[in-house]
Structures are given as C-alpha cells and as structure tokens.
Amino acid sequence: MTAAPPGRRRIAVLATIVPIIYGLDLLTKTVVLRTLEGRDPLVLIPGLLQFRVIFNSGAAFSIGTGMTIVFTFVAAAVVIAILRTARHLRSLPWAVTLALMLGGALGNLTDRLLRWPSGFGRPSPFQGHVVDFIETFPGHFPVFNIADSAIVCGGILAVFLAWRGYQIDGTRDTGRAEK
C-alpha cells in the first residue's frame, strides 16, 4: 500500500477537523438553548465566566445588527473561498488554519439559515440569528460561541503563518519572514 500524496493528507486533516469544530459548535448551542434560553445566566466563575444565551443578528461583537442577510452571504462566500483555496493545500499548518475557519464559518452560517429567538416567529430567508453564549468578564467582553473561537484562532494562525512566510502550497517565502 502506498501513502497518500502530501496534498491529500492535508485535505484529510482539514476534512477531520471541520466536522469536529462544526459538531462541537452545533452541540454546545443546542444544549445551551435547551437548558438556558429564557433563564438567568449560568455563572461558572463569578466575575470571570458565565453562560448566557443571546441571539446575534450582526457580526462579531454584535457589529452591524440588522444586516443579517449581508453577513449570511459573506459567510457563504467565505465557505466557498476556503473550499476553493483548499484545492492548493500542501501545508499542514494551513490545513489546520483553514479547518478552524471553515468549521466556524459553517457553524455560524447554519445559525443564520436555521435559528432565531423563541417567540419571534420564523424570520425571512437568510435572516436567522447566531447563538452566542460564552461570556468572559461579564459586561466587559462580547458574548461568543465555539464557532467564533475557531474563526478567531484560525485568523490568528493565518496572520502568523503569513508573517512567517508559510504558503498554502507548502513552500516558504524566507525573504518575507526575515523582513
């Protein structure tokens, strides 16, 4: 038996991480909605960490509330762009980076297509709300979810990899990393 070409192994890494992130995001949102929606926050560490359900129609940090349809199409475009970029994937760090961003984007896109607050009736197509529930430093930091965390971690990794000169195709631009 011969080993898979390097590009296929990287795609396999991406194809393994994406459903894990997506599944964790959907599972945690479902559990939190069933147990906390309409209730007081669940305080885990006073002043530091609590779970509180909010429905976010905007982007990260509730920016652009009321522009849900725009963010839905942006999320769909991001998913398509990542899938197209993955065709050239030959780098393990970039496979992890793209997987984090894709899994997170799919999780929040699913919310925008299928979720909305109880009692609000069914929204117009593409105008659902993202479920956020993790609140650190209550009152001082935005509420977020697993998908948001994955997207942010993927974004930080992308900046780091680009700064160090690592390319998606597995090559390294050493001139960029030394500047």
Score class of each variant (00 low, 15 high):
81 A>E: 11
118 S>Q: 13
100 L>N: 02
137 F>R: 12
131 V>Y: 06
93 P>V: 14
3 A>L: 12
171 T>W: 03
97 T>S: 12
95 A>V: 12
172 R>P: 06
73 F>K: 13
89 L>D: 05
171 T>M: 04
112 R>L: 14
104 G>N: 03
87 R>K: 15
81 A>V: 14
112 R>D: 11
99 A>E: 01
114 L>W: 13
171 T>P: 04
91 S>Y: 08
36 L>E: 04
117 P>M: 06
18 V>N: 06
117 P>E: 11
158 A>D: 09
99 A>D: 02
84 R>P: 02
146 I>R: 02
22 Y>W: 15
69 I>N: 06
108 N>D: 00
98 L>E: 01
105 A>S: 15
113 L>R: 11
166 Y>G: 06
69 I>V: 15
13 V>H: 06
30 T>R: 13
75 A>R: 10
149 S>R: 00
169 D>Y: 08
138 P>E: 07
35 T>I: 02
11 I>W: 12
80 I>K: 05
39 R>Q: 14
124 S>Q: 14
98 L>D: 04
37 E>Q: 13
23 G>T: 01
106 L>D: 07
139 G>I: 03
29 K>M: 03
42 L>H: 08
101 M>K: 01
132 D>N: 09
6 P>N: 01
176 R>M: 09
159 V>M: 14
99 A>G: 10
98 L>A: 01
16 T>Y: 01
120 F>V: 14
119 G>Q: 09
57 S>Q: 14
19 P>K: 07
12 A>M: 07
71 F>D: 06
97 T>F: 09
82 I>R: 07
15 A>N: 03
76 A>K: 12
133 F>Q: 00
71 F>W: 13
58 G>N: 10
48 L>N: 05
163 W>S: 11
169 D>K: 09
138 P>T: 10
128 G>Y: 07
151 I>T: 02
155 G>L: 11
81 A>R: 08
166 Y>N: 08
41 P>Y: 08
95 A>E: 04
116 W>V: 05
42 L>G: 00
17 I>E: 07
160 F>V: 15
131 V>F: 01
84 R>K: 14
138 P>K: 04
123 P>F: 12
120 F>C: 11
24 L>R: 00
15 A>Q: 03
102 L>G: 06
125 P>F: 15
32 V>W: 07
70 V>K: 09
176 R>Q: 12
17 I>A: 06
103 G>M: 05
5 P>V: 08
71 F>I: 10
46 P>L: 02
129 H>F: 10
90 R>D: 10
40 D>H: 13
149 S>L: 00
38 G>P: 04
118 S>L: 12
24 L>A: 11
158 A>V: 10
27 L>E: 04
107 G>N: 01
26 L>E: 01
104 G>S: 10
35 T>C: 03
62 S>Y: 04
59 A>M: 11
25 D>F: 10
162 A>M: 11
98 L>R: 02
63 I>D: 08
156 I>R: 03
77 A>K: 09
110 T>L: 08
137 F>Y: 14
14 L>Q: 00
81 A>N: 05
92 L>P: 01
79 V>G: 11
12 A>T: 08
95 A>M: 10
71 F>E: 07
135 E>T: 01
39 R>H: 14
163 W>M: 13
174 T>M: 02
20 I>R: 04
45 I>S: 00
122 R>M: 10
48 L>R: 14
20 I>P: 00
165 G>D: 09
108 N>T: 04
12 A>E: 02
138 P>A: 02
113 L>K: 07
